[in-house]
Nucleic acid binder design. Structure first.
Lengths: 332, 332
DNA sequence: TTGTAGGCGTTATCAT
DNA sequence: ATGATAACGCCTACAA
């Protein structure tokens, strides 16, 4: 059917090994020979057969992104960054939803079809997943794990510092009772962000009031319900810090429903800076994470490990920033 | 490293061909033999090597979803449906963003690594893409193309009927000047939905007023700007029909900004019924498309074509429905 | 019902 | 700088 290196070889009058050399960018090919081969290949519309290459190399050009995350907008950004990197580096991005069918993860791992795996929260901290990957010797990288380790590289922002800074900002605005809507507790980022919140309070001599801290699930609906609980308190907060933008959007909706104007009567801030943040009303003050860059960087670190499995895993911390839009204001 | 069919064969005391038979579910294997083989395979933690299989079969277990769509929420649902189907049917879903790097599509096609390709708007109607796929003999399926053809199977809802029904609903509510925000004109669905709108007007003896029809880009921002244009008209519409939910959300935001209450002063309805529709305020009256089911069905039809390239392409029309929430009301 | 021979298209190894 | 030979692990075709 389609041309092989042998076809190209005979068309170019060289041995097929030379064709292989050309297509692998190996040294020791005379320039004239290279050109002859390339012309013949173009003529025959030749492409290397990936299956044959993978078989012989015991390799793969597939990177898997494991998905099981309640926030689609978070995944979207990660996926875009990863897709882009893959397409520029000769890989393909395979997406696998582990929530819908847990066996699919096991299949994926056992099949050995993936050159490497990208993990996002909460899988980045899931001991079963980490050990499965490790015992099958599949290179992987973790995005936003709770803590780093020697097993795999990671990419993150400093969640603790980011949450601390945002909380300090709210304190500087005069807020003294600040509600926190966290993510689920099995997310490392949830714990780190709560720690940052707590540190900021402590630094300002404010007491940590467990009543003001509610656990959401990174969804719009839980943002609403946690906000409802917070506003029903005898002493409700004057500011609410949601651990992602979806929950912040839910918080704004709940306030709006109760006739509480944001930011005039209540300050609400989010985390992530995904699409919804600049699209709701009022636009959201939030912590920006460079999710696309994080994903691209994660793929890069993963590639290093694929190429050299014994290399020491690197741990990158990318910069975050506070995006000040219109959903925050001074305590009134 | 990892076990091969030969290892399993000698462990089970049979020939490797028998192992192959077992793992391909072929007939003519005695039950006792099958069990012996399966036990040995379990023992050795054996899995078929995909690269070898693909090489020999000249096949692949990869299906590509080509992405280049302004509405992430639309893609998300399609992707979820496709991922799920793939994981249940021994395939992997590869996502490829053609907007970020157009060459990636060419590479994908030439490499022949994909068993098939799923196309969504606007690629479903892109002549260059269709002919590239056809000339490379890559099976593909089109989701929501403008019209069907003999080249590839397709899955759609009846956009024309759906848009007609929604428009009729608005007319029944007493609206006479109904604004339409379309998608880009290179989307077949845009044209079909506008046709449905037009038919409904005609059926009610209302005139099609080009002033009331604006072309958006399926984005929140264009929903806003088109609504602004519509509301600035000397005779503004009393209802606006946006061709997707993102634009409807933008329309609501624009109305809100101008102090125009929805639905009391202005009716706004959307299309798709993606996540944002039930999450904004007021919740959106919209046309529901079963996007996940459409994607799963598309994968199914694609598989038929992969298995038998000469089979006549099927064209499925899935049911739509009108979801009546709170963003519509009678003309006031 | 089970087994044997051969080759899919590439890369590795070793030679020239 | 280039070439010959041998795998990689599986499936197809045919034989027993």
């Amino acid at each position: 059917m389609s041309a092989t290196i042998k076809d190209v070889a005979s068309a170019a009058g060289v041995s097929f090994k030379t064709v292989s050399r050309v297509f692998n960018g190996e040294a020791n090919v005379r320039e004239a020979t290279r050109e002859k081969v390339e012309a013949a290949a173009r003529e025959l519309n030749f492409t290397l057969n990936t299956a044959a290459r993978n078989l012989r190399r015991r390799g793969s050009n597939l990177i898997a992104l494991i998905i099981s995350n309640p926030s689609r907008s978070y995944i979207d950004n990660i996926q875009i960054g990863a897709m882009d990197w893959c397409s520029r580096n000769g890989f393909h991005l395979v997406v696998e939803d582990i929530l819908a069918r847990p066996e699919s993860f096991e299949d994926l791992i056992k099949s050995g079809e993936m050159a490497g795996v990208i993990l996002i929260p909460p899988m980045s901290d899931d001991p079963d997943i980490l050990s499965a990957l490790t015992s099958h010797h599949i290179p992987f990288v973790r995005i936003a794990p709770e803590t780093d380790n020697d097993i795999a590289p990671s990419v993150r922002i400093d969640d603790r510092a980011a949450a601390r800074e945002m909380t300090q900002k709210l304190i500087a605005l005069g807020h003294r009772r600040i509600g926190l809507i966290t993510g689920p507790n099995n997310f490392g980022v949830s714990r780190n962000r709560r720690a940052g919140y707590s540190i900021a309070l402590q630094g300002a001599g404010l007491e940590y009031d467990a009543e003001l801290v509610r656990e959401g699930a990174f969804s719009y609906a839980t943002g609403q319900s946690c906000t409802a609980q917070l506003l029903d308190l005898a002493h409700p907060p004057t500011a609410i810090f949601a651990s992602n933008d979806d929950m912040a959007a839910g918080a704004i909706a709940e306030s709006y429903k109760r006739g509480i104007a944001v930011p005039h009567k209540l300050t609400i801030v989010g985390y992530d800076d995904v699409a919804v943040a600049s699209v709701i009303s009022p636009p959201l003050t939030t912590v920006r994470q460079p999710l696309k860059d994080m994903a691209a960087r994660a793929a890069e670190l993963l590639l290093e490990r694929i190429r050299d499995r014994d290399s020491a895993p690197k741990h990158d911390v990318l910069p975050h920033s506070l995006i000040l839009r219109a959903s925050h204001g001074p305590r009134t």
